[in-house]
Nucleic acid binder design. Structure first.
Lengths: 153, 153
DNA sequence: TTTGAAATAAGCATTCG
DNA sequence: CGAATGCTTATTTCAAA
């Protein structure tokens, strides 16, 4: 992988806060010419160092009233069970995030839903009625203290 | 809050996948004119229905080698302890996400770091040496099965 | 090659019917 | 709301280092 210099990093720091800054605005902030910034952005996107550019939607606007963190333990079912579970999570629109982790449980999910009733349906369908799932613990989010995708650069 | 019609929702669905689509491209996909799309986007951003527009950076490019999910239990310290902890998490660049939750622990963190050594420093400084923290459990992420911010619309 | 400035193309934002 | 248009921004080109 090609090394990033301090100016690349600075650009990435800015873009992960706001990717609608113009190349001119960016150029001023990092002390480069507009075309230098332009070239760098093209390169960063080509190399998939910038993986994606997305809008963040307000949960309330999407009728998301409840967010839960769900810890899941699977039965010992070998790697097939794990892969099946991963695939199911990737397919579910409610599951924003899913991590396969070490420790006292196997998966951590971040799940967004309209309301608790909807969560009940969700958990019945994907967790309770799922023969791979041994147990799960639900934690309702009271405060989304911080929710970013920003990485330390 | 103002209602979103199906076309607004469609626009938001598209933008939370890719916000670099041009207003022309969006217009074709949702069967509106370019200027109609333009008006809607301006409104959605003004009303903060679109909260932000950001670039997603590849973890490897940011030298993020380890992601952990950390469950934290605080001592009974009233709301002051909770607020202090929230503030500390908001300040930390390593903490991408922090949720205050119901259930068997108080907070869930998603933490990004260069390596385990770095995580040790982090946990010492923000967790072990933090008098508010009673206990914490660390889960190392083996597979980032799904990591999006997309909401179901 | 790599750089910045200028020219060109593309996209955004506004006006008007 | 959509069509037309002026304005802004992105992208390409090109000359110089």
């Amino acid at each position: 992988m090609h090394e990033l210099d301090e100016q690349d990093k600075q650009l990435l720091r800015l873009l992960q806060q706001n990717n609608r800054l113009t190349t001119d605005q960016l150029a001023k902030k990092v002390n480069l010419s507009q075309s230098a910034v332009q070239r760098r952005l093209t390169r960063l996107r080509e190399k998939k160092i910038i993986e994606a550019d997305v809008s963040i939607i307000a949960p309330a606007a999407a009728s998301v009233g409840i967010t839960c963190v769900v810890d899941v333990i699977l039965h010992e079912g070998g790697s097939k069970a794990v892969d099946q579970f991963k695939a199911a999570m990737q397919k579910s629109v409610e599951v924003a995030q899913c991590y396969y982790v070490t420790g006292t449980y196997d998966f951590v999910l971040i799940v967004n839903m309209r309301d608790m009733q909807h969560f009940e349906q969700f958990s019945k369908k994907l967790l309770m009625d799922n023969p791979n799932v041994k147990h799960f613990y639900t934690h309702v989010v009271m405060d989304r203290v911080k929710s970013s995708y920003a990485l330390p650069l």
